[in-house]
């Protein structure tokens, strides 16, 4: 692990510790959960350059699978979490295998179509999923692991700690994936698919694998989300949510996986504060999107980089 990674992780851990002092536990938990969902999208979108508009389907499959188990069986958390991760991972593998052979708009539209299929399947399968009303009566498990004493997850602080530990752990794994040979193959394929193939990389297999892993972590984020408000709302699967996840990655910056959780936090807090200012807040939001695209393509991380000389001047310190 490089020093830059250590510093980034330190900042992330610090933010997780400080967040509850500034925000309610539910908002802080939600930021972390969407931070994980955005980070899970990063290997596909950021490293692979594949603009998947099907991320909400993966998030949703995880949430509905885990949520259904929690609503119907008093199991330790481990099982719903594994089930959600596995279901989303399997679907992501199938979706990835069918989509990665198509490029640009075809790829976007295929992932979008898969997202719509999942949405309508969940919408129609009312007896199991609750349809339009969402999956209700999800109970947060009384135990985390089999044979261990119980924990009261209905206490907001306990739930936040659980989310923080799981999200941080998953983020470490995602970081390993991004830095692994798989990440290098994905990056090479993004730069020049033909050359990467000529070197001997099986790029479609690598891209499918990236999808599968993205699915596993999106699924975990989905299970945590199902526990957050004790319901799994169907809008979480809507394609708009896929678009939001892409935008979170972008707003944070495509250059680093550390941008994804920052992007998720900025995105959610920005919407919350704009909606208090003006009923027509999506107009302001649209202007911000245009502004970011035209002037700040590196996202918040680039903004940080631009501020750095100014900060240094302000503190009067020389470069160490």
């Amino acid at each position: 692990m490089t020093r830059s990674r250590m510093v980034g992780l330190g900042v992330l851990a610090g933010s997780i510790l400080v967040a509850p002092a500034l925000l309610s536990f539910s908002t802080a938990s939600e930021l972390l959960i969407f931070g994980l969902a955005a980070a899970a999208a990063y290997p596909v979108i950021g490293v692979g350059g594949l603009f998947s508009f099907g991320q909400a389907a993966l998030f949703g499959i995880g949430g509905y699978t885990g949520g259904w188990l929690m609503a119907h069986a008093a199991l330790p958390l481990l099982w719903p979490l594994l089930a959600g991760a596995a279901a989303a991972g399997l679907f992501a593998t199938a979706m990835g295998a069918m989509c990665v052979r198509r490029s640009s708009i075809y790829f976007i539209m295929l992932t979008f179509a898969f997202n719509q299929l999942v949405y309508y399947a969940i919408y129609s399968w009312r007896g199991v999923t609750g349809g339009q009303d969402g999956l209700a009566d999800i109970a947060r498990p009384a135990r985390l692991l089999p044979y261990l004493p119980g924990v009261n997850l209905d206490r907001p602080v306990n739930f936040y700690v659980l989310v923080a530990v799981i999200v941080f752990g998953c983020f470490l794994l995602l970081l390993r994936i991004v830095d692994s040979p798989l990440g290098r193959v994905l990056d090479a394929a993004k730069q020049n698919a033909r050359r990467a193939a000529a070197i001997g990389y099986d790029i479609h297999r690598a891209q499918t694998l990236a999808f599968a892993l993205s699915g596993v972590f999106s699924g975990i984020a989905g299970v945590l989300y199902a526990m957050l408000y004790w319901i799994m709302p169907i809008d979480a699967v809507a394609w708009v949510n896929s678009g939001n996840l892409v935008f979170m990655v972008l707003i944070g910056g495509l250059g680093s996986i550390f941008g994804a959780p920052i992007g998720a936090a900025v995105f959610i807090l920005l919407q919350d504060s704009l909606s208090l200012v003006w009923d027509r807040w999506p107009l302001l939001f649209g202007l911000i999107v245009i502004g970011v695209v035209l002037f700040l393509q590196g996202g918040v991380l680039e903004l940080g980089g631009m501020l750095r000389p100014a900060l240094r001047r302000a503190s009067g310190a020389d470069a160490p």
């Binding site: 678009g243 935008f247 972008l250 027509r280 999506p282 107009l283 939001f285 649209g286 202007l287 911000i288 999107v289 245009i290 970011v292 695209v293 035209l294």
Partner: peptide
């Protein structure tokens, strides 16, 4: 994304 933002502004 630029076109998406433009669409949002027009709609609103």
């Amino acid at each position: 994304l630029l076109l998406f933002g433009t669409a949002l502004v027009m709609e609103q």
